[in-house]
Design a protein around this nucleic acid. Structure first.
Lengths: 377, 377
DNA sequence: GTGGCTTGTGAATCCAGAG
DNA sequence: ACTCTGGATTCACAAGCCA
């Protein structure tokens, strides 16, 4: 009999009960810590947790076109202080540790607002950090005001029960998934959108729904079929849906009724995985990396002060230390300066600008190729 | 006199002296905290710190009660170790905060072993995290045993002096450097190797020498020419070498004589960029002079009575002789009228309002550009 | 059908300066 | 401290519309 048949077809909702048998494939509609207390010690194989980030947002934020950004303003993300957040974090981590098996492991995701406090608490609770993983967002929200770097990633921490504890790591699966190269600690996925994003009346059901591809890789890496995976901040049930697809048991804890309802429907509709889905999910990463002109300068492929020109030597421009180009009074990116001097709406600076090399002109695009060859595996 | 000439050609080594003037372009051969204590308050523009990663710090370590730890003979558990590391971290961060200017900022780099504790301490010290940055290593060391993910990144934290504090961020430089796209929070660089890697007798001088490209981007992003940049864990002086190249002053603190010696030679050999290239970088960051709408009217670029409209011709407004705009009963600045008619909290009138020109609509911002080009030297 | 254009939107600690 | 105002700011995708 296959593993999948052991997973209940229809997700249940229950109130947490002390001393009950493990409520497999069930959503416990309750407070996260109270529900964990109802679970027996050393009963869970893996925990995936997406706790509140403790965002401390100021006023409203508008896009340059005037539209409003729909931010996270829910009550579940409100804490009075770092101290209050730390207390909360240590409390749920302590319960997490109690219910995890000795060879279990825990994953927690967060951003710079909370991840340092979470990581510290994980270490202080006695867990042993195995890796920190960076989820690079393919399509992050830009920084509208131009005041910081685009916040384009989130961080996951993966930890075992202790320095000497065993844990599951499916090394071969990860290597296969990554074209026979070891899986690295930086993963690129798009943010959750399209048909995967749960919506009701045209509005997103949950403000921070995670992409299934992310959970897929986490479970494939650190759990086995038939394992029990707990998500103490279940939300709309991404963890449950992926667990069902991958033949893992799951337990979700969620306080808010509308999230529970959405999660239930979603998991019920989830189908155990077939090959085609697997291929689709992983077929996203193979485009050649974009190279910015500034990288060539930063990495010494082109010295600041170098003179560039076009094929007909009509214009001469100097490379700046920041990857800018200056031609007469015009300064900016290679593309911008190219379009300005030609009075053209746009210009591909890579093919327009040339470098003198042994008497011959050569487009700077060849430098980019050289750089790509040198830096690609 | 240019900025560069103020930077001492030959790096000096000194013992930290209380009340001395700022020891620019000097390596202080001393304990990190003692040396920082010798520097005056609010005197540093930027700090870049690469503190020890592992928790076995030997002589640096003191227990929370202040007693010294002998890491060789003491058999302390990891909680003592974390506590000692936290004490050390908070101590140097406190001094860092004292000597930073109110509009300064701090960068700290670390890995999952220490970065969560550092990040927590940064927040607890009163700094305000602006971004966490991921350095993706193009060529990381593989995980030989196949027991975890390849540890392919390190994390930098960038923080200002407080939530409301000002700080330097050269948005335009970063955008230029990244081919006219906002710079993201994930940066890819190769690890330090090749001719850049300092070696002596065939062995690397320092185990964790950072690539210059990394420091280059950090300084280009968050400091200005002539700024004073402190590195309290100077090592072999990457911070100093890059600071010299970029026309920044630097101060390094390093206890070990062999590192100091290597850093000195290296910085002496580093070549600064010439004035023109630094000017280019500045030109990219300095904003063009503000042009009031009324100036366009005053100078005949736009006649009073001209009709303006938005892209979809939903509203029509008339230019007044005083540079005001009137749409129906609403009258005021181009921004105010734009926001009022749209019922929006704010509006950039320069891009919202358009003028009919040869049948096509054109934002009035192009008029401003024309005016700027005609009036700027 | 299809290709191009427009519109919408995502875990965001997102302004500066004058008065 | 506060308010007010001028004006500077966005990228990758998905979905929908139209020619």
């Amino acid at each position: 009999m296959g593993v999948l048949e052991k997973v209940a077809a229809r997700p249940r909702v229950a109130k947490a009960k002390p001393q009950a048998p493990l409520p497999l494939d069930t959503i416990l509609m309750d407070d996260c810590i109270a529900a964990m207390k109802s679970l027996p010690a050393k009963s869970i194989d893996m925990i995936f947790a997406d706790p509140p980030y403790n965002l401390q947002l100021g006023g409203d934020l508008a896009r340059p076109d005037g539209s409003q950004v729909d931010a996270v303003t829910d009550d579940w993300d409100k804490f009075d202080s770092f101290a209050a957040y730390d207390t909360f974090t240590k409390a749920w981590l302590k319960e997490a540790r109690r219910i995890l098996k000795d060879n279990g492991s825990i994953w927690v995701i967060g951003s710079y607002h909370n991840i340092f406090r979470v990581g510290t608490a994980i270490q202080d609770t006695g867990f042993w950090i195995l890796n920190d993983i960076v989820w690079r967002k393919a399509n992050p929200m830009p920084n509208f005001r131009g005041t910081r770097f685009t916040n384009a990633h989130e961080t996951l921490i993966w930890a075992s029960m202790g320095e000497k504890a065993k844990y599951t790591f499916n090394y071969r699966s990860m290597k296969t998934l990554n074209d026979e190269l070891q899986m690295r600690s930086d993963w690129e996925f798009p943010i959750c959108g399209g048909p995967e994003r749960l919506k009701k009346d045209g509005h997103k059901v949950h403000p921070t729904q995670k992409p299934e591809a992310l959970l897929y890789r986490v479970m494939l890496a650190a759990s086995k079929p038939g394992d029990v995976i707990l998500d103490p901040f279940f939300g709309t049930g991404t963890t449950g849906a992926v667990a069902k697809r991958l033949g893992r048991h799951w337990i979700g804890i969620e306080r808010e009724g509308n999230y529970v309802e959405a999660a239930q429907e979603r998991i019920e509709a989830a189908l155990p995985l077939d090959e085609s889905q697997l291929k689709t999910m992983q077929a996203n990463t193979k485009k050649p990396p974009r190279v910015a002109f500034g990288q060539l300068v930063e990495n010494g492929y082109l010295a600041p002060g170098t003179m560039l020109t076009d094929t007909k030597r009509r214009w001469r421009a100097v490379v700046g230390a920041d990857g800018s180009l200056t031609c007469d009074t015009v300064s900016g990116s290679i593309h911008k300066v190219g379009s300005t001097v030609q009075n053209a709406p746009s210009c591909n600076g890579w093919t327009f600008w040339h470098i003198e090399s042994e008497g011959a002109l050569q487009p700077i695009d060849t430098l980019r190729q050289t750089y790509l060859l040198a830096t690609q595996p």
